[in-house]
Write a protein that binds this DNA or RNA. Structure first.
Lengths: 175, 175
DNA sequence: ACAAAAGTGTCCATTTTTTTGACAGTTTTT
DNA sequence: AAAAACTGTCAAAAAAATGGACACTTTTGT
């Protein structure tokens, strides 16, 4: 199984924090928690964190998610490489949109489905590494084709939908 | 006789599911069924599936196939090697086109002809040895990149190692 | 709310690739 | 051994990619 490293969960509800801790323990090597975002930036300075799960409401009686957006922004500013997944009790489309536009990687509503949550977090981390270059993908596919055609250039070219000469050239070029 | 392995059928209508089960039992070693796509990805994690037959409408009263497209995309994302055949009660050309462009292997309308259905499924599996065209591979990779960059052309182009204009052109060309 | 920054659609001229077609020589098939 | 298929290579024509540019729109930061 793959290793998904350290996740930092920020939520002011202890019960939810406990539930999340339980749910995430199987996937992540370490699950750090904070009941208040105040120490969030400090925490990021001293611990290596691979992904953050951030609740959006911390001010009592205020549930517009403004809080979460502010903290999201702070994280993005100081640690733009750490992906942030937002979580909120209110399935507010516009809030989700704003969160994603400010760089959140995903948006989850409570009550959440454990499997789905884990899957989404994994997705975010999987997507974190960047994609291969078009040339690389092409080169690999060409190798596959040649392999399958037992080195027969003409057939491989036809299979690939390019001319024999082009394949011939690409082979030189791409080693 | 050849062995066509395991097929996973997803349709919310039990009667149809039963009928399909009977129809496919002769060809496939195992016929797995799901009445809802919710557990689809989970199922794929724990069972080896060789081909998926996916209905396109699961939301009551909504028959535009959007549901199916979303699930198709999810499957393609996590298991791009498993061929998906779409099935729907509505012979909607544009839906079929969209489905195929998103990587479905075939598109079947209800009521179906048993022999034809089986033939098409076999064809898909038989054709699985043929490699994709270079253009197809390229197109799919471009879609992935755009997805990861949330549609940001500039970033996707950089990630792919091509110029923004080229990506722009390819996008028109490859739809 | 506003200015700055980033991204988009589009054009152009120049450079690179791809395609077509061809041909002599080599390998494989029958 | 003859036929058929494949290879390496060349040249001219067609197509695609690149870098630069510009006005315009969207997003961001404060």
């Amino acid at each position: 199984m793959q290793n998904y490293g350290t996740i930092l969960v920020v939520d002011d509800n202890e019960a939810i924090l406990t539930a999340l801790k339980y749910c995430l323990a199987g996937t992540f090597e370490r699950v750090l928690t904070l009941t208040s975002p105040d120490r969030l930036l400090a925490q990021l300075e001293q611990e290596e964190v691979n992904i953050i799960l951030l609740d959006m409401n911390f001010t009592l009686g205020v549930n517009n998610g403004q809080d979460g957006l502010v903290w999201l922004q702070a994280i993005r500013k100081h640690h733009p490489e750490i992906p942030v997944v937002l979580i909120t009790a209110y399935a507010d489309v516009s809030l989700a949109v704003r969160g994603l536009k400010r760089g959140a990687s995903d948006f989850i509503t409570k009550p959440w489905d454990n499997d789905e949550l884990v899957r989404k977090l994994k997705d975010v981390l999987d997507a974190a590494d960047d994609l291969a270059t078009l040339d690389e993908v092409e080169a690999e596919h060409i190798r596959r084709a040649l392999d399958r055609c037992h080195g027969n250039l003409t057939k491989a070219a036809e299979m690939l939908g390019i001319s024999r000469q082009t394949l011939y050239n690409k082979m030189k070029h791409l080693q």
